[in-house]
Design a protein around this nucleic acid. Structure first.
Length: 392
DNA sequence: TATCAATTTCCTGATT
DNA sequence: AAATCAGGAAATTGAT
């Protein structure tokens, strides 16, 4: 997700080559507008959610520790209070989300605050941002609507002016899933990259391939900054390890040395979780005993079950047979990675996990058709008339 | 603490 | 040539 151009966690790692262009365009622009500042300690209180209902909180700038000031996350601020930087972050995010060619956007048009942005009509947006204008307008409307108390229903709406819930009673509305993922990711990666970029200047780090923490290459990794929220569940990103160990000054890093000895090579397997010490320090987001959460196939299924909201990621080829196709394979992988707090997820890796489902008959092979899969007899919830996993 | 399921990562080779 | 598929091997995680 592009959230902040100069601390963009995902660009250039998991996305296709076009994203590099996007990344560089926005990075350059951000670095011009916002020279690096020193990272401050982040209040974990400001970041952790409050319960298993995945409460997400918007904050008013300046009210919540250093976070809002330093991190500048547009998702945590109501749109009409966005600064210029928030606006840029948000545009950058939408550019990435839609795989838009950032070079087609006149960045000087982006120089406005949230108040001004909110005054723009759909036509204005089209004029300013071309084909992306509609998307921006719709997304902004969506964000603004979040501030409007919803009609009373099963979803809790307390404190709705500043928060929204993705509660157990009302799960899996795709937009909420998406926003939840984005917001959560924002909390996870936004701060990290803020620190990375702030401490390292323009140096970008591929989050998918962290430097060996003890290697010469990684010794350049700057780190005295403190940080940050951390999901308690698995799959802390590689960057998690580096940043935390660096920032904590620990020296108990595994002295691994991959067999080939190649520098900057990550080792196999899931990214290592941070150690207990840093984990305590950093505060975890989820309960130690929280459920594992949806499996990959359920995640895929749930996207498919929200056709209006799945953003062209996947489509049914034959709904009655459970045949579906990836339309934007890398975007789906990216989203899956966000859900798992893994910024280096790719379609290649996701597809490996999908192939493991063949044996378990959660999926069936569809020979000769690229990007096409079929739900198997051990999957559920996708059939018409099934009691799906979605809905209240 | 050990074990397990479910990935995640890396890899080589084949196919489209 | 690049993307995707296939599947082995090993690593890691959270759950039990």
């Amino acid at each position: 997700m592009v959230n902040n151009g100069d601390r963009n966690p995902l660009l250039g790692s998991t996305m296709a080559g076009g994203s590099c262009v996007i990344s560089s365009v926005f990075n350059n622009y951000f670095s011009t507008l916002y020279p690096p500042v020193q990272a401050h300690a982040v209040s974990t209180e400001a970041l952790k959610d409050r319960d298993s209902n995945k409460l997400l909180t918007f904050t008013i700038p300046g009210t919540t520790s250093d976070l809002s000031a330093e991190v500048c996350d547009w998702e945590q601020v109501v749109p009409h209070m966005w600064t210029q930087r928030h606006v840029l972050d948000w545009i950058s995010y939408n550019v990435e989300r839609n795989k838009w060619d950032a070079s087609t956007i006149d960045l000087t048009q982006c120089e406005m605050d949230g108040q001004r942005l909110c005054q723009l009509s759909r036509e204005d947006m089209r004029t300013m941002f071309g084909g992306l204008g509609d998307t921006l307008y719709d997304h902004l409307s969506q964000l603004r609507d979040l501030k409007t108390p919803p009609p009373s229903n099963s979803c809790d709406s307390s404190d709705y002016d500043l928060t929204f819930h993705l509660s157990e009673e009302c799960p899996s509305e795709w937009d909420l899933i998406y926003d939840y993922i984005q917001c959560e990711d924002n909390l996870q990666f936004g701060v990290k990259n803020e620190i990375e970029s702030d401490l390292c200047g323009d140096k970008t780090i591929d989050p998918g391939y962290y430097s060996d923490p003890i290697s010469p290459a990684s010794s350049e990794f700057c780190g005295s900054g403190s940080y940050s929220p951390q999901a308690g569940d698995s799959a802390g990103s590689d960057i998690d390890v580096d940043i935390k160990t660096a920032s904590l000054g620990t020296n108990n890093l595994p002295s691994y040395n991959k067999s080939d000895g190649a520098p900057n090579r990550r080792r196999r397997g899931r990214p290592r979780k941070i150690n207990a010490e840093s984990s305590d320090f950093l505060e975890t987001k989820k309960s130690k005993h929280s459920a594992r959460g949806t499996h990959l196939w359920e995640f895929i299924r749930d996207i498919l079950l929200q056709p209006d909201l799945n953003d062209g990621l996947l489509k049914w080829e034959d709904r009655s047979e459970g045949v579906f196709k990836f339309l934007r394979s890398e975007a789906v992988a990216h989203l899956w990675g966000q859900k798992k707090k893994n910024s280096s997820m790719t379609y290649e890796k996701l597809s490996r996990a999908m192939r493991y489902y063949y044996k378990r008959e959660i999926l069936e092979r569809v020979d000769g058709r690229r990007l096409v899969y079929k739900f198997g007899k051990n999957s559920s919830g996708w059939r018409l008339g099934d009691k799906g996993s979605l809905g209240c």
